[in-house]
Design a protein around this nucleic acid. Structure first.
Lengths: 134, 134
DNA sequence: AATAAAGTTAAAGTTAACTTTAACTATATA
DNA sequence: TATATAGTTAAAGTTAACTTTAACTTTATT
């Protein structure tokens, strides 16, 4: 039970290796909504930090901020309308399926990279073989 | 042994669900370099198509075109200098490690999405339970 | 209490990745 | 062979995702 529970914008920024203005930009885009101190400065909770990590993770997988906003929005649904929740549920299912598809794509990408590597290794071997023939 | 071996720009574009101008743009960025007909029109081989697929795949994983160019460049290295090949080899290893890191990130993303889903399911259950109490 | 460091907003600026446009050429079809 | 369809280049335009700037306020340090 160590670790802080609240962070200033620059603390959080350096933890996540992004700039404070990026964090403000995400707020402008409604991806986060931190509390404020009496003096109007932003305070971030662990939950805010988790959300930012999710945003950055989504980005690393090529999702746009708009898509990420949609995904995150699911956690925020205040609505208690069954139809709305069911709609969100269908959406999460679609996204989960997408993530699984990404995993097989990642396999393909890895295969391509390994093929490139093998190619380079082979080339090295050929060179040293040629060397011997001289 | 069916399937075509050569494609026009619009054929390839529709196969990959991108626009011809995107393909031309990638050429301008030196990511591909197709042959030309006598009348100067571009002809794409299966190899070109594979390369384009790799580009699109890289993009889906959040790589920039510059990074993709670097990765693709490895396949193009004409150089037979051992030191250069060794450098490229180190680079592929780094990228392969990165891909493996991405896989664990993908797991985290999936976990997050599943948590959201469970949350929605729970919410639905609460509503129908509440319903019964009325 | 003074001053430096960090935070605030609004607006303008930047860059990557395309897309559109315009003016022209090549190829396929009636 | 005419004409529609597809392709070509160069240049300008667009959008998402930030970054920078400027003028000001709050908080921390001496």
């Amino acid at each position: 039970m160590d670790e802080k529970n609240h962070y200033s914008i620059s603390e959080l920024a350096s933890m996540l290796e992004i700039s404070p203005s990026t964090i403000r930009f995400y707020e402008e885009k409604k991806l986060i909504d931190p509390e404020r101190t009496s003096g109007n400065q932003r305070i971030y909770t662990r939950k805010d930090r988790a959300r930012l990590k999710l945003i950055l993770r989504g980005k690393r997988f090529g999702f746009s901020l708009d898509e990420i906003a949609e995904i995150i929005g699911l956690a925020d649904v205040e609505v208690n309308e069954v139809s709305q929740i069911e709609k969100s549920l269908a959406y999460t299912d679609k996204r989960i399926a997408e993530i699984r598809a990404r995993r097989s794509e990642l396999d393909l990408l890895e295969t391509d990279m390994i093929a490139m590597k093998d190619n380079l290794v082979k080339r090295l071997e050929e060179i040293s073989a040629g060397q011997n023939e001289v």
